[in-house]
Amino acid sequence: MASDSELSDFLKSVEKRAFKRSLYHVRDEDAALDIVQDSMMKLAEHYGDKPVDELPMLFHRILSNTTLDWFRRQKTKNALFTNFSQFDSEDSTEDFDLLETHQIQEGQERVESAQRTVERHQSIQEIEHEIQKLPARQREAFLLRYWEELDVAETAAVMGCSEGSVKTHCSRAVQALDKALKAKGLQP
Protein backbone atom coordinates (compact mmCIF):
# COMPACT_ATOMS: atom_id res chain seq x y z
CA MET A 1 0.00 0.00 0.00
CA ALA A 2 1.25 3.47 -0.87
CA SER A 3 2.27 5.57 2.10
CA ASP A 4 1.10 9.15 2.52
CA SER A 5 4.39 10.48 1.23
CA GLU A 6 4.33 8.13 -1.77
CA LEU A 7 0.80 9.18 -2.61
CA SER A 8 1.76 12.83 -2.22
CA ASP A 9 4.85 12.37 -4.39
CA PHE A 10 2.83 10.61 -7.04
CA LEU A 11 0.20 13.35 -7.11
CA LYS A 12 2.91 15.97 -7.24
CA SER A 13 4.48 14.25 -10.23
CA VAL A 14 1.25 14.20 -12.23
CA GLU A 15 -0.70 17.24 -11.07
CA LYS A 16 0.62 19.78 -13.56
CA ARG A 17 0.26 17.53 -16.57
CA ALA A 18 -3.18 16.52 -15.34
CA PHE A 19 -4.14 20.17 -15.10
CA LYS A 20 -2.91 20.87 -18.60
CA ARG A 21 -4.64 17.80 -19.99
CA SER A 22 -7.91 18.92 -18.46
CA LEU A 23 -7.33 22.46 -19.63
CA TYR A 24 -6.80 21.32 -23.23
CA HIS A 25 -10.17 19.60 -23.02
CA VAL A 26 -12.33 22.05 -21.10
CA ARG A 27 -10.50 25.34 -21.84
CA ASP A 28 -11.36 26.81 -18.50
CA GLU A 29 -8.74 27.06 -15.77
CA ASP A 30 -11.17 26.87 -12.86
CA ALA A 31 -12.98 23.90 -14.35
CA ALA A 32 -9.67 22.17 -15.06
CA LEU A 33 -8.54 22.75 -11.48
CA ASP A 34 -11.84 21.37 -10.17
CA ILE A 35 -11.47 18.30 -12.35
CA VAL A 36 -7.93 17.65 -11.16
CA GLN A 37 -8.93 18.18 -7.52
CA ASP A 38 -11.91 15.84 -7.86
CA SER A 39 -9.70 13.24 -9.49
CA MET A 40 -7.13 13.50 -6.71
CA MET A 41 -9.84 13.15 -4.06
CA LYS A 42 -11.38 10.14 -5.79
CA LEU A 43 -8.01 8.46 -6.09
CA ALA A 44 -7.13 9.10 -2.45
CA GLU A 45 -10.54 8.17 -1.03
CA HIS A 46 -11.23 5.08 -3.10
CA TYR A 47 -7.81 3.79 -4.09
CA GLY A 48 -5.55 5.19 -1.39
CA ASP A 49 -4.80 1.68 -0.18
CA LYS A 50 -3.55 0.46 -3.56
CA PRO A 51 0.13 -0.17 -4.30
CA VAL A 52 1.95 2.85 -5.63
CA ASP A 53 2.64 1.27 -9.02
CA GLU A 54 -1.10 0.93 -9.68
CA LEU A 55 -1.76 4.60 -9.05
CA PRO A 56 -0.78 6.04 -12.48
CA MET A 57 -3.25 3.95 -14.46
CA LEU A 58 -5.98 4.51 -11.90
CA PHE A 59 -5.39 8.24 -11.89
CA HIS A 60 -5.42 8.55 -15.67
CA ARG A 61 -8.66 6.61 -15.82
CA ILE A 62 -10.23 8.71 -13.07
CA LEU A 63 -9.10 11.94 -14.71
CA SER A 64 -10.55 10.89 -18.07
CA ASN A 65 -13.85 9.90 -16.47
CA THR A 66 -14.04 13.07 -14.39
CA THR A 67 -13.41 15.18 -17.49
CA LEU A 68 -16.12 13.26 -19.32
CA ASP A 69 -18.49 13.83 -16.39
CA TRP A 70 -17.77 17.55 -16.61
CA PHE A 71 -18.79 17.60 -20.25
CA ARG A 72 -21.95 15.65 -19.42
CA ARG A 73 -22.85 18.14 -16.72
CA GLN A 74 -22.21 21.03 -19.07
CA LYS A 75 -24.42 19.42 -21.68
CA THR A 76 -27.13 18.91 -19.11
CA LYS A 77 -26.98 22.56 -18.22
CA ASN A 78 -27.40 23.44 -21.90
CA ALA A 79 -24.03 25.08 -21.81
CA LEU A 80 -21.87 25.22 -24.85
CA PHE A 81 -20.58 21.79 -25.68
CA THR A 82 -17.50 22.61 -27.59
CA ASN A 83 -17.46 21.87 -31.24
CA PHE A 84 -13.97 20.54 -31.49
CA SER A 85 -13.60 21.32 -35.16
CA GLN A 86 -14.54 24.97 -34.90
CA PHE A 87 -11.36 26.87 -34.57
CA ASP A 88 -9.62 29.77 -36.08
CA SER A 89 -6.23 28.81 -37.45
CA GLU A 90 -5.22 32.11 -38.96
CA ASP A 91 -4.50 34.11 -35.86
CA SER A 92 -0.80 33.41 -35.43
CA THR A 93 1.78 33.35 -38.15
CA GLU A 94 4.97 33.85 -36.18
CA ASP A 95 7.95 32.17 -37.69
CA PHE A 96 9.47 29.78 -35.14
CA ASP A 97 11.53 26.69 -35.63
CA LEU A 98 10.55 23.93 -33.24
CA LEU A 99 14.00 22.35 -33.34
CA GLU A 100 15.74 25.65 -32.82
CA THR A 101 13.64 26.28 -29.77
CA HIS A 102 14.34 22.79 -28.55
CA GLN A 103 18.09 23.21 -28.83
CA ILE A 104 18.20 25.93 -26.24
CA GLN A 105 18.47 23.53 -23.37
CA GLU A 106 21.70 22.12 -22.00
CA GLY A 107 25.12 23.10 -23.26
CA GLN A 108 23.90 26.46 -24.45
CA GLU A 109 23.94 29.71 -22.65
CA ARG A 110 21.61 29.52 -19.69
CA VAL A 111 20.43 33.07 -19.77
CA GLU A 112 17.91 33.64 -22.48
CA SER A 113 17.40 36.93 -24.15
CA ALA A 114 14.01 38.51 -23.68
CA GLN A 115 13.23 37.94 -27.34
CA ARG A 116 14.19 34.29 -27.08
CA THR A 117 11.98 33.84 -24.02
CA VAL A 118 9.04 35.41 -25.77
CA GLU A 119 9.60 33.27 -28.86
CA ARG A 120 9.79 30.11 -26.82
CA HIS A 121 6.66 31.04 -24.92
CA GLN A 122 4.81 31.75 -28.13
CA SER A 123 6.02 28.53 -29.66
CA ILE A 124 4.66 26.56 -26.72
CA GLN A 125 1.39 28.44 -26.95
CA GLU A 126 1.13 27.60 -30.65
CA ILE A 127 1.67 23.92 -29.97
CA GLU A 128 -0.84 23.94 -27.12
CA HIS A 129 -3.30 25.70 -29.38
CA GLU A 130 -2.88 23.02 -32.03
CA ILE A 131 -3.27 20.30 -29.39
CA GLN A 132 -6.56 21.89 -28.34
CA LYS A 133 -7.74 21.89 -31.95
CA LEU A 134 -7.43 18.13 -32.24
CA PRO A 135 -10.60 16.05 -31.94
CA ALA A 136 -11.10 14.96 -28.34
CA ARG A 137 -10.27 11.28 -28.78
CA GLN A 138 -7.19 12.01 -30.87
CA ARG A 139 -5.99 14.52 -28.30
CA GLU A 140 -6.56 12.13 -25.42
CA ALA A 141 -4.76 9.29 -27.21
CA PHE A 142 -1.85 11.54 -28.18
CA LEU A 143 -1.40 12.98 -24.69
CA LEU A 144 -1.65 9.64 -22.92
CA ARG A 145 0.60 7.86 -25.38
CA TYR A 146 3.33 10.44 -25.87
CA TRP A 147 3.09 12.88 -22.96
CA GLU A 148 2.14 10.53 -20.16
CA GLU A 149 4.27 7.88 -21.90
CA LEU A 150 1.79 5.05 -21.51
CA ASP A 151 2.15 2.17 -23.93
CA VAL A 152 -0.53 1.37 -26.47
CA ALA A 153 -2.25 -1.23 -24.27
CA GLU A 154 -2.33 1.08 -21.26
CA THR A 155 -3.67 3.94 -23.35
CA ALA A 156 -6.37 1.65 -24.71
CA ALA A 157 -7.28 0.59 -21.17
CA VAL A 158 -7.57 4.19 -19.97
CA MET A 159 -9.61 5.24 -23.00
CA GLY A 160 -11.76 2.12 -23.01
CA CYS A 161 -11.10 1.32 -26.65
CA SER A 162 -9.06 -1.12 -28.70
CA GLU A 163 -5.32 -0.86 -29.27
CA GLY A 164 -5.99 -0.44 -32.97
CA SER A 165 -8.12 2.60 -32.24
CA VAL A 166 -5.34 4.08 -30.12
CA LYS A 167 -2.84 3.66 -32.94
CA THR A 168 -5.25 5.22 -35.41
CA HIS A 169 -5.99 8.16 -33.10
CA CYS A 170 -2.31 8.76 -32.39
CA SER A 171 -1.33 8.55 -36.03
CA ARG A 172 -4.02 10.97 -37.10
CA ALA A 173 -3.18 13.33 -34.26
CA VAL A 174 0.49 13.43 -35.18
CA GLN A 175 -0.30 13.93 -38.85
CA ALA A 176 -2.64 16.78 -38.03
CA LEU A 177 -0.04 18.38 -35.75
CA ASP A 178 2.70 17.95 -38.34
CA LYS A 179 0.57 19.58 -40.99
CA ALA A 180 -0.55 22.45 -38.76
CA LEU A 181 2.92 23.18 -37.37
CA LYS A 182 4.48 23.11 -40.81
CA ALA A 183 1.83 25.55 -42.00
CA LYS A 184 2.87 27.88 -39.20
CA GLY A 185 6.55 27.52 -39.90
CA LEU A 186 7.15 25.38 -36.85
CA GLN A 187 9.06 22.71 -38.73
CA PRO A 188 9.69 19.66 -36.56
Binding site: K20, L33, L98, H102, I124, Y146, W147
Partner: peptide, 24 residues
Protein backbone atom coordinates in the same frame (compact mmCIF):
# COMPACT_ATOMS: atom_id res chain seq x y z
CA UNK B 1 7.58 14.48 -33.96
CA UNK B 2 5.37 13.28 -31.12
CA UNK B 3 8.30 13.25 -28.69
CA UNK B 4 9.31 16.76 -29.73
CA UNK B 5 5.80 18.05 -29.20
CA UNK B 6 5.66 16.31 -25.81
CA UNK B 7 8.97 17.96 -24.88
CA UNK B 8 7.52 21.35 -25.77
CA UNK B 9 4.47 20.62 -23.66
CA UNK B 10 6.79 19.74 -20.76
CA UNK B 11 8.45 23.12 -21.15
CA UNK B 12 5.04 24.70 -20.95
CA UNK B 13 4.53 23.04 -17.56
CA UNK B 14 7.42 25.05 -16.11
CA UNK B 15 5.62 28.24 -17.00
CA UNK B 16 2.47 27.51 -15.05
CA UNK B 17 1.36 30.56 -13.04
CA UNK B 18 2.23 30.50 -9.37
CA UNK B 19 -1.39 30.60 -8.23
CA UNK B 20 -2.23 27.52 -10.31
CA UNK B 21 0.71 25.66 -8.79
CA UNK B 22 -0.40 26.69 -5.31
CA UNK B 23 -3.97 25.58 -5.91
CA UNK B 24 -2.73 22.26 -7.20
Amino acid sequence: LARQVAAQLDQGLRELPHDISERL
